[in-house]
Design a binder for these strands. Structure first.
Lengths: 189, 189
DNA sequence: ACCTGAACACCGTTCAAGT
DNA sequence: ACCTGAACACCGTTCAAGT
């Protein structure tokens, strides 16, 4: 833990890496929830001045957006398999990331400027797959909405249940239960 | 606009009514979104001292909880009709309230301590109706989750789209589109 | 270019005091 | 009982300065 002074880091001291900031931010989110992630707390954990963060991310929303990027950029449909299985795979991948970081889900859902990007991409991937599976464009859009909204609703329930682990919560649609519902929907499709 | 002084209101001056506070809070939420609703802004609008609010509601979450109560307590299944139609009616009633106050939806979804109460009641109403419609307890729970999560996901999309009216948003599942999806789900059920 | 410290304009909330 | 004013402990963020 070498103490940092003001000014540009000298040659041997390395600059603070944005990815370090992101991983620590995610750690805070996972451990303390949405409330725990403040610019000041994050800076303290990384061992830098709060204002240094602004050199790497425009503001708090920018940080959250970068967090969302790093987590959800991995969510893609499986390369092969029949279209229906690829739909299932895409949704499952999305839901699995969501389950790993419930507080991030909440952060994204709370901030309009953070949310749309990924949902849009995933929705459009989904629509393409549904058309490949033989649905009409209209029905692809309809079922795209159904599947994405179902996933988001389930994610929300998990995020809220996890945030202040209320054991009296109404058995949120988590884990296996989510998959059962997804299967049921794919059958109806 | 008679100015208020300190101390207990005299006989002719009426005490600040909690319902007045609630309706103004809802007005702020509808007009300025979640960010706009601060204790201080609310007090200014009602024309009272910020601290007066704490005499009527424990804290910000308590206020939000009361807001949720006042809006969602009206959501009940229709008295008669066949069970399937009553399911549709309950979901439609829920979704319609959500559409009226997107920012309230967001407020509830962001605060774990506010959310569960109503979702729990509505979910349990829904399960009862589904059993009446002839589903097994297991399948009632499964479809209860599907329907509630779908509704919440759609609500979220609307709330986020409305918050900063991004016209480039990916055509959220709103209005008629929601009903189409709901019908599709009820057919599959 | 990269980092810091002080300062600004806010928050929610506690507490003591007024009638 | 009901209301207020000042104060506390926070926020995110801007800005000027240091290397």
């Amino acid at each position: 833990m070498t103490k940092r002074g003001p000014g540009r880091p000298s040659a041997n001291t390395e600059a603070v890496s944005p990815s370090k900031i992101l991983s620590e931010a995610l750690a805070i989110l996972d451990a303390k929830g949405l409330e725990g992630l403040t610019m000041r707390a994050l800076a303290a954990r990384v061992g830098i001045n709060p204002m240094t963060i602004y050199h790497h991310f425009v503001d708090r929303d920018g940080l959250t957006r970068a967090l969302a990027d790093s987590v959800y950029s991995a969510v893609h449909p499986p390369e092969d398999g029949d279209p229906r299985a690829r739909v299932a795979g895409l949704i499952a991948a999305y839901h699995s990331e969501v389950l790993k970081h419930p507080a991030l889900t909440l952060a994204i859902f709370s901030r309009p400027s953070v949310f749309p990007g990924h949902a849009r991409r995933i929705t459009s991937d989904l629509n393409k797959l549904l058309e490949e599976a033989g649905l009409s464009p209209d029905r692809s859009q309809l079922w795209g909405h159904i599947l994405v909204d179902y996933t988001h609703g389930a994610a929300l329930a998990v995020a809220l249940a996890g945030e202040h682990n209320l054991s009296q919560s109404p058995s949120p649609n988590t884990g296996d239960s989510f998959d059962d519902g997804l299967n049921e929907l794919l059958k109806a499709l």
